[in-house]
Amino acid sequence: MPVHRPRTARTRTARSGHSAAGVLLAVLSALALLVALPGAAQSADGDDIPPRGSARMGQGVIEHDGQGGRPSGGDAAQTEGVDVSSHQGNVNWSALWNSGVRWAYVKATESTSYRNPYFAQQYNGSYNIGMIRGAYHFATPDTSSGAAQANYFVDNGGGWSRDGKTLPGALDIEWNPYGAACFGKSQSAMVSWIQDFLNTYRARTGRDAVIYTATTWWKQCTGNYGGFGSAHPLWIARYNTSPGELPAGWGFHTMWQYTSSGPIVGDHNKFNGAYDRVQALANG
């Protein structure tokens, strides 16, 4: 005959232990899921890190350089332009054209893994409305070589053709939104990475790429290197009443991004010259 023993304290404790372990496991699983959600990551200082691919031109300019006034005018002829990315979605190009915008840059790629899902609407739409347009690449020098990213850019919309309506590709090299400002590179290593990108882009397209940057970043992350100014047009980012101090090697800027809050959509820019100078850059 089986002997029925009453539950002992040890039995109750063991079962309670199993219950506690289950609760702990559930909590840990929930925390792991939260960390895995897009945009849930945090940097070492606790700031939210955006999902890869979401970076856009000028993203770090306000944080590092501040948002100032609009251009103060002047007598020199300038031509209005915009730059857009997936953040703008499908763009109303007619409205921009009617407001006086005559050229545009569209984000094509980032690293070697991201393509702007709105690229066709934005790149072709600006062209079809009559604008001179080009494509830009958001550089992430910590993920792959300059050559690899230049090739990816050209293969996914960053090319150039002598049609009078296509600007040379632009390299967007600025603060890293995903981590260390200089992408973990020394100043000399950063210069080498940029040179690798530029050399590859020229070999693929026959054109010298435009360099988009901010003077403060350029000083911090390249040591204010002055070797690119003779061949590569400068697109300076400064949200203020003037372009301000330029990086070493450039005696003048070709384009100036002066605000991230355009009257219609996108970041707004001034080309340093009349419309025929925009055409000249497109024609090479």
Rank of each mutant, 00 (worst) to 15 (best):
M1Q: 10
R5F: 15
R5L: 15
T13S: 14
G22I: 04
L24W: 00
A26T: 09
V27G: 07
S29Y: 08
A30K: 00
A32L: 14
L37G: 10
S43L: 13
I49C: 11
S54F: 06
E63H: 05
D65T: 00
Q67L: 02
G69Y: 03
R70F: 10
R70N: 15
R70A: 15
G73W: 01
D75K: 00
G81E: 08
G81K: 05
H87A: 10
V91C: 02
W103Q: 00
A104D: 07
Y105K: 03
T109E: 13
S111E: 10
Y114P: 03
N116Q: 07
N116G: 10
Q122L: 12
G125F: 12
Y127P: 00
N128W: 00
I129M: 06
G130P: 05
R133W: 04
Y136G: 08
F138N: 05
T143Y: 10
N151E: 15
D155N: 15
G159K: 01
G159R: 02
W160F: 09
S161C: 01
D163S: 04
D163F: 01
G179P: 06
C182L: 03
C182H: 01
F183M: 00
G184L: 15
S186L: 15
Q187I: 10
Q187R: 09
A189L: 05
M190W: 05
V191K: 00
I194R: 10
R202F: 13
A203K: 05
A203E: 06
D208C: 01
V210P: 12
T213L: 11
T215F: 04
T216E: 11
W218C: 09
Q220I: 12
T222D: 08
G223A: 11
G223C: 11
G229M: 02
A231V: 02
H232R: 02
P233A: 10
W235M: 08
I236F: 06
R238Y: 15
R238K: 14
N240H: 11
P247T: 10
H253Y: 15
T254H: 13
M255H: 00
S260V: 01
S260I: 01
S261H: 12
G262N: 08
N272H: 12
G273W: 14
Q279H: 09
A282Y: 04
